[in-house]
Design a protein around this nucleic acid. Structure first.
Length: 446
DNA sequence: CAGTCCCGCCATGGA
DNA sequence: TCCATGGCGGGACTG
């Protein structure tokens, strides 16, 4: 079945041979044909075909590790990661003149199978960056769609959790957990009420505020969709008092605590996919759990385009924000990823020591502002044209930034409690503070 | 070796 | 029947 995988012969070119011939791994930045017309149904002129995967511009810089990693050719799976693909995808479409996104077009331009585009698009849609319009066709919203999507997500969840939203029908057990594979009918009393509640609210979620009353059998499939899982994952951060979660925890929470091992494995695999994409959007970052070797993900909440080394305009490397996070989708070599090392917090501290202004600068750079390159990264300024205007929008942005500042400050100050409980407690404070502040600012801006 | 996660088979459901 | 979607898990890759 999987002959190609065991083929000693070129495993790279063997693949996809019956699929759309891929274009180069990534098109030249700012591909010349990248005008609105190019994203329309008539397929753009095929880019010059190059052997797939072989010509990654090693912006990662031939690290020995990278070189070693490559069995044959210059292949590394990192070059194909969903995160990187997502970055490329965003770089490709996050432009003023792009309105629609065609899946085929994307696949061709990015040199990947259509299947992968689905993965990307599904999570982008769940965070509001894209909207599906029709078969094969999405509308590009961009990063400015994210705050609204998150807000709506949070509100919906809170509403559902507080029981204000009457369940469409008596929630049968089958509706509750998204892994109810007609198997594990353990009528057990699940341990965790919170997660149970959450998974309820989560599983009834749908794109439309109003959906046909009853979940159809086809929903069974939807329940497990990557898009929904993405939203559920995000909800964990938005509505539960967690600062970071490991994927295991997330899977457990989303499964409502009854874990058939195989379900867990599958779920975790999907969460990896999602985490990679969200991470490349800068919505989350990978960190290390304090008391275990297990990595976890921290909510950043500030979606923005990452500067992919191979994709977008080169940044002055010095501006790069270092952390222990795995820079999905950006740094090809990932050389700064020290697994099992606890470096994030200590790296943050020096920034604090330098005083607020330096922190602000960091935030600014994170927000893509204060750049001199002329290339605009700011999530809320895809056009860049409005950058200097002082209008409502700008004010709102500043406020957003403010929140972010405070959050970052809190995060940076988060002490390294050995004691889990203390750590959690601190998390509670931060969380409460955040939501208080968010509410406050939301009121004042709406 | 455990953690990651790419890859593509193939089920599903709509046209 | 065709085709667009996308669930799913094997197993390759990584550290």
């Amino acid at each position: 079945l999987h002959l190609s995988k065991t083929q000693p012969a070129d495993p790279i070119t063997n693949k996809q041979d019956h699929k759309i011939p891929p274009s180069p791994p990534f098109p030249p930045r700012h591909p010349p044909a990248m005008d609105p017309a190019a994203t329309q149904p008539p397929p753009p002129p095929p880019p010059p075909y190059l052997p797939p995967r072989l010509v990654i511009d090693g912006a990662g810089g031939g690290s020995g590790a990278a070189a070693r990693a490559c069995r044959h050719h210059a292949y590394s799976r990192k070059q194909k990661s969903l995160g990187l693909l997502c970055s490329n995808f965003v770089a490709l479409y996050d432009r003023d003149d792009v309105e629609t996104v065609g899946l085929d077009d994307a696949a061709r331009r990015l040199g990947v199978e259509r299947r992968r585009i689905y993965d990307i698009v599904n999570v982008l849609e769940s965070v509001g960056i894209l909207v599906r319009r029709a078969k094969n066709r999405y509308t590009w919203i961009g990063f400015e769609g994210v705050p609204a999507a998150l807000k709506e997500l949070k509100e919906r969840t809170l509403r559902e959790m507080s029981g204000l939203a009457p369940p469409p029908e008596e929630p049968s057990a089958a509706n509750v957990s998204d892994d109810e594979d007609d198997d594990d009918k353990l009528g057990d009393a699940d341990g965790d009420a919170d997660s149970e509640k959450l998974s309820q609210s989560i599983d009834n979620a749908s794109d439309k505020p109003d959906t046909p009353m009853c979940p159809r059998r086809s929903d069974h499939r939807k329940e497990k969709s990557l898009g929904l899982l993405t939203q559920n994952f995000v909800k964990l951060f938005l509505t539960m008092e967690v600062e970071t979660v490991s994927l295991d925890e997330a899977a457990r929470l989303l499964l409502g605590e009854r874990h058939a091992e195989s379900n867990m494995r599958t779920k975790v695999r999907r969460l990896y996919d999602i985490a990679n994409v969200l991470s490349s959007l800068n919505l989350i970052e990978k960190t290390q759990q304090v008391d275990s070797r297990k990595p976890a993900f921290r909510w950043l909440g500030q979606a923005k385009r990452k500067e992919g080394a191979t994709v977008t305009v080169a940044l002055p490397p010095a501006r790069k924000i270092m952390s222990s996070k795995r820079a999905f989708g950006t740094d090809i070599t990932n050389i700064d990823n020290k697994r099992g090392k606890l470096v994030l917090e200590t790296e943050n501290k020096p920034k604090l020591m330098q005083g607020g202004s330096s922190m602000l600068k960091t935030f600014e750079s994170q927000l893509g502002q204060g750049k001199s390159s002329g290339f605009v990264y700011g999530p809320f300024h895809p056009a860049g044209a409005r950058k200097h205007e002082v209008d409502d929008q700008t004010v709102r942005e500043n406020e957003t930034k403010n929140i972010q500042d405070w959050e970052n400050l809190a995060v940076s100050f988060r002490p390294q409690y050995q004691n889990h409980a203390l750590n959690d407690l601190f998390g509670h404070y931060v969380e409460a503070w955040k939501s208080w502040y968010l509410d406050l600012t939301r009121e004042s801006t709406s």
